[in-house]
Design a protein around this nucleic acid. Structure first.
Lengths: 117, 117, 117, 117
DNA sequence: GTGGTCTAGACCACC
DNA sequence: GTGGTCTAGACCACA
């Protein structure tokens, strides 16, 4: 996996996992890769994945069963979906509209880009 | 001014200035606030504004007249506008569409939000 | 049974058993549940209960009759009682008093709580 | 500083700091030692203190001013006090009373210990 | 100077 | 096997 420089790696891994859950690839209550396995497959340090998992656990997206590993939270998909939709409508979209005006993009321009994507 | 935690303050100040220029509030060749004044009015450290001005100067958005202060570059508005439109269509918009799919937002949803804003 | 996160599960099970013995529910020389049964009824791993029993055996609280199972030690109740009273007066109580001062609880506050419990 | 084996060092440092705040030694909005300084004076690793500070920040006990350091939260003393009093009355005290009954300690025994401490 | 992050590697308790 | 913690040391962005 490639990582952007602008953001902490452990947060990029968290986003990667949230997308897996959002897309339904990792269903509720299912075990996710062990810290060591994920670290190895992403080519990052063990402690970096530890940080990701601690972060997601604190967000109640995943949880730990002692000695067994981490599992997808029972309401994780819905929780992530709602949090992200909330952020989308209240932060991303207003910022988008602000930029559109500033840069003279119309809704039609966006539509055209959407159809050609 | 309030600053987000996720981004460097000096870059948020740079955006703030670019928007002033884009909107035509600060026309070409006009003097912009001194480092000390801007730092005071934004409530940030002097060095932080120095960094912003160095950054914008290096981007050829502003320039320095020794002993007089910083001024808006002659082609600044157009330069900023083109760079931002470029970034908008090639980075912001694709990312927007990706999120829309992940979160089940349609183009109609965006239109509706646009009309109600 | 619910387990606290702050302490090892096998130790929490050991406390559970010691309380049974202290309260007289499990008298001396009486057989206690098999490892498998207890593990099943508590919803924990077999090895975890094995560890509890080994721990309690080493503390001379329970003992093993080969092929028959584990039994409550002959002097277990008195032994557990003395060890816990010792710990109570020399560790729990001093720590209690320290917290009381820090949090402005008086002995009267404790008495009041005791009467209303 | 001496650390117990039974608990993570970073949490023991967090308790140490909370007691400083509770006792009024570190007032609201006052800067606390830098990560490096505290690590050096406690004889622990830099990262261990980083963990403590992240933990306390997440608990809203301290907060960060970028480039300046960590500061005691504005309502920190009251917040810590309330959280600990809550824990005291609802966890420590009930557990105390349970143990008292199990070990045949009376309220008078506790009083006597308190007066002789 | 400040904190934030990452790597490398170790030891431990636990299941 | 699993995660949890700690050390050591490095580099970076930031004020």
């Amino acid at each position: 996996m490639e990582f952007a420089e602008s953001k902490a790696i452990y947060l990029q891994i968290a986003e990667f996992i949230e997308e897996k859950i959002l897309a339904g690839d990792w269903p509720a209550d299912e075990r996710i890769p062990s810290v060591r396995d994920l670290a190895a497959s992403l080519g990052v340090n063990y402690n970096t994945v530890v940080r990701t998992y601690e972060f997601l656990q604190q967000q109640e997206v995943i949880f730990n069963r002692r000695g067994l590993g981490y599992f997808v939270g029972l309401e994780a998909q819905e929780r992530v979906r709602q949090r992200q939709r909330e952020e989308f409508t209240h932060k991303i979209i207003p910022e988008l509209f602000r930029k559109m005006e500033l840069l003279s993009f119309s809704l039609e321009d966006i539509s055209a880009l959407y159809k050609n994507k």
